[in-house]
């Protein structure tokens, strides 16, 4: 490892400090390497020559938090991403969810909504949608607004149809959208029971009692301490016997809060809150 902090690292720490002081936004628990790249891109996007210049603009009061957050958490997602995971949710989790009279699901970090709509389709096909409510939360308000619209580029439809079938879809993906010019508009019935809401995993607390928490590829951006704190929040949100599904390369092994969970399918990163 290098022995002294690099100027780049110092600039990033100055950015983190400025975000805290001027916008009340706590980024201190974010993993630095990916944050560094994102802040560099944000500075570039907003026409600043460097992170230092962006920090100066923040200190002058010339920035808005939603715009900064939208530039920092650039959503990259797709429907039925990693189809085998959705297959496992269908086989191993939904039959158990069916035993509760009302089902509450929290998807943390929904970005532009592709995953929560995939989940909605899964619930529809299992006959569980009508008694489910889904909270889809994200820190990025621009992404949330897009998620709420449920309109996606038509060029994605073919890949998503394939992923839908690989995930064990029982109908045809085209049953769930209307094509219009270059876009597909998802069937509005899919969002009847989805509540989109702004929520910051770092600072906002538990707000529901859920049978399933889905949070894929969000924890990878956090350091160990924050990963552990957020896992604790998921634990406190879940009913006994409730399920947690993480991204397929995320690991629970370092977090003390993980002791509350047992693996249902370790490869699919599906866990269950122990009952005692």
């Amino acid at each position: 490892m290098i022995d002294a902090p690099l100027p780049e690292h110092q600039a990033l720490e100055a950015f983190i400090e400025a975000m805290q002081t001027h916008h009340g936004m706590d980024l201190s628990g974010y993993a630095r390497a990916s944050l560094q790249r994102r802040v560099e891109q944000l500075a570039l996007r907003d026409g600043h020559a460097s992170i230092e210049a962006l920090v100066k603009a923040i200190r002058r009061g010339g920035t808005s938090l939603p715009a900064l957050v939208a530039g920092l958490s650039v959503p990259v997602t797709e429907m039925f991403r990693n189809p085998p995971i959705f297959q496992r949710l269908r086989e191993a989790v939904l039959p158990v969810l069916a035993s509760w009279p009302h089902i509450t699901i929290w998807q943390a970090g929904c970005a532009t909504g592709e995953e929560v709509y995939s989940l909605a389709i899964l619930l529809k096909e299992a006959g569980l949608y009508e008694r489910s409510q889904i909270f889809a939360t994200d820190i990025n308000e621009a992404a949330l607004a897009k998620a709420q619209e449920g309109i996606f580029p038509a060029r994605e439809a073919r890949a998503w149809s394939l992923a839908y079938r690989q995930a064990g879809g029982s109908g045809s993906f085209s049953d769930y959208y209307h094509a219009a010019y270059e876009h597909i508009r998802l069937d509005s019935r899919l969002k009847a029971n989805i509540h989109f809401a702004h929520h910051n995993l770092v600072t906002d607390g538990v707000f529901c009692e859920a049978q399933l928490v889905l949070c894929r590829n969000v924890l990878i951006y956090f350091n160990r301490e924050l990963q552990n704190a957020v896992l604790g929040r998921f634990r406190d949100s879940l009913v006994r016997g409730g399920f947690l599904c993480l991204g397929n390369r995320e690991s629970l092994s370092f977090a003390p809060a993980a002791k509350a969970f047992v693996a249902v399918d370790a490869e699919a990163r599906i866990y269950r809150l122990q009952t005692s």
């Binding site: 993993a31 390497a33 990916s34």
Partner: peptide
Amino acid sequence: YHLLVEPSGELSLSVDG
């Protein structure tokens, strides 16, 4: 996933573009 080396020396992953 992108594979990254943190300044701390740990490895991390990202699904950025």
